[in-house]
Design a binder for these strands. Structure first.
Lengths: 151, 151
DNA sequence: ATAATTCCTATAAATTCATGTTGATATCGG
DNA sequence: CCGATATCAACATGAATTTATAGGAATTAT
């Protein structure tokens, strides 16, 4: 299967959760992992592991101690999905050789290399076109439609 | 990482190898796994496992016994990359829920679901646009360019 | 018969996924 | 300062999945 790892999926939901709780005015109400864990039904322990690379790549800021938690390092409209996946996965390429050409010595003659490379570019392009704000917006719109229908 | 499994990668190379040895006139010169193993540097034992789903999905035909081997079940121009990956991976979706919506009970409200779904559609579209013949053609062109350059 | 080759099943090795443990460090409110 | 709250860090563990190898049975051409 062509698969996005759980790190990528859970990390995206984590960031999206932070985006939904982002306070545009003051931007200082940190969200604790416990809340994200409850919302997203992902164990805190695993979230702790996942958030490390997000912090290293300066996509989130941590506030330690009581009243602490995490907040987005930038506004939701300034964070792209591609950045999140890149932080979590190191790269978002379908196969190792696309990112690191020294990975395989037969790239020059490999007939499949250009295929995976193109496919990777296409995917990257899509993920690069979406910001956290876009995605939150899509979800809100969807939820409204749902309510209308349910009536 | 968003990753294509080795089954998908190796299986594609396997099929491409069969395509390169496909005899359009008679179509009856079976290729043995030993040769593919040597060409592609993938262990025979592993190729044996990989080719099973390709056989089940009628993308290759097997000829048993001495002088046997494998041949494409159809012409290279009639086999799409999407079919190969579908046979090998069961589905080519980035996350389980895209193929099987019962996989997760929160799909309705999941803000990431439409993202993975769109991305999957985009990828599928690309893989569906390529036949084995196209890919062999690309590789031959590339190899000629290489020779010209080397001169 | 013999050699070649697919077919079938088991299993080893490596990696990913997820939780648990222990404890250190930082911060807030009283 | 004290105690509660959270992040931070380093491991450890076990289940599940992916990756790869192995042994031998079944089939067929010569």
């Amino acid at each position: 299967m062509i698969r996005l790892s759980t790190k990528g999926r859970y990390g995206t939901r984590l960031m999206l959760n932070l985006a939904q709780h982002y306070d545009n005015g003051n931007g200082h109400k940190a969200v604790i992992l416990k809340n994200i864990s409850d919302d997203e039904r992902i164990s805190i322990r695993y979230l702790e592991q996942i958030i490390i690379p997000l912090k290293i790549n300066r996509l989130v800021k941590s506030i330690r101690g009581a009243g602490g938690g995490y907040i987005l390092a930038r506004k939701p409209e300034d964070i792209r999905l591609s950045e999140i996946l890149h932080a979590l996965e190191g790269n978002c390429c379908l196969v190792e050789c696309v990112e690191d050409e020294s990975f395989c010595e037969f790239i020059e003659t490999c007939p499949t290399f250009p295929i995976w490379k193109n496919a990777t570019e296409i995917l990257k392009g899509y993920f690069d076109s979406l910001t956290l704000k876009d995605i939150v917006g899509m979800a809100e719109k969807k939820s409204k439609q749902g309510k209308t229908k349910a009536r």
